[in-house]
């Protein structure tokens, strides 16, 4: 098999590209679904919240309760929007950053670590926004955020950040060695 010229890009492993493309596709679908099913989503969330008045601090007074429910619905919608944005963004970042790692990081161990952390971390991180949105009607805004933070954002977000700094460090070292 011919190896590519030294100054051309190398393609990341197929599973990495698959994760990135699926993430971008899901982001596109979520953007469309947010618009298409807005009414159904709102009805569902409102129903779940009304069935759990204690969780949301609903007091049975329409004026007060409507304000609380509206705030939760805004946050739920915000979570879906942030999922859409982050999934599109991270999908692209995964493709680009793993391509850089595959091409320019010479140590196989470091290259695999960066690619794995970036793909798993970057691929799962946006799902935290879906978890948050889905949790809001059941457990409330703050408890939902805490669940998403500890289950998804902190572990997977940290993995992606560590990977990106490892890659930055590897490139900095390469630049210094070239000097």
């Amino acid at each position: 098999m011919m190896s590519p010229a030294p100054d051309t890009w190398r393609v990341p492993p197929p599973w990495v590209l698959l994760v990135a493309v699926v993430l971008i596709a899901v982001a596109e679908v979520s953007g469309a679904s947010m618009v298409k099913f807005k009414l159904e989503l709102t009805r569902w969330a409102r129903g779940v919240m009304l069935a759990r008045p204690a969780v949301h601090g609903l007091v049975g007074v329409r004026d007060v309760d409507e304000q609380i429910i509206d705030e939760a619905l805004v946050k739920l919608d915000g979570g879906l929007r942030l999922f859409h944005l982050h999934a599109e963004g991270m999908g692209t970042v995964i493709v680009v950053a793993t391509m850089v790692a595959t091409t320019l990081v010479r140590s196989t161990g470091l290259q695999r670590t960066v690619v794995l952390l970036l793909t798993v971390g970057g691929g799962a991180y946006p799902v935290g926004y879906l978890v948050w949105s889905a949790a809001i009607p059941y457990v409330g805004i703050e408890r939902g955020k805490s669940i998403a933070e500890w289950l998804v954002w902190i572990p997977f977000g940290s993995a992606a950040i560590v990977a990106m700094w490892l890659l930055t460090g590897a490139l900095a070292l390469k630049l210094v060695q070239r000097q």
Binding site: A5, V96, A97, V100, L104, W165, L167, T168, L175
Partner: peptide, 18 residues
């Protein structure tokens, strides 16, 4: 596709990390 100079790639990755 040819890749750009490492300095440009480094700056891009640095900004992504930031």
């Amino acid at each position: 596709m040819r890749r750009p100079p490492i300095t440009v790639v480094f700056l891009a990755v640095l900004m992504l990390a930031l």
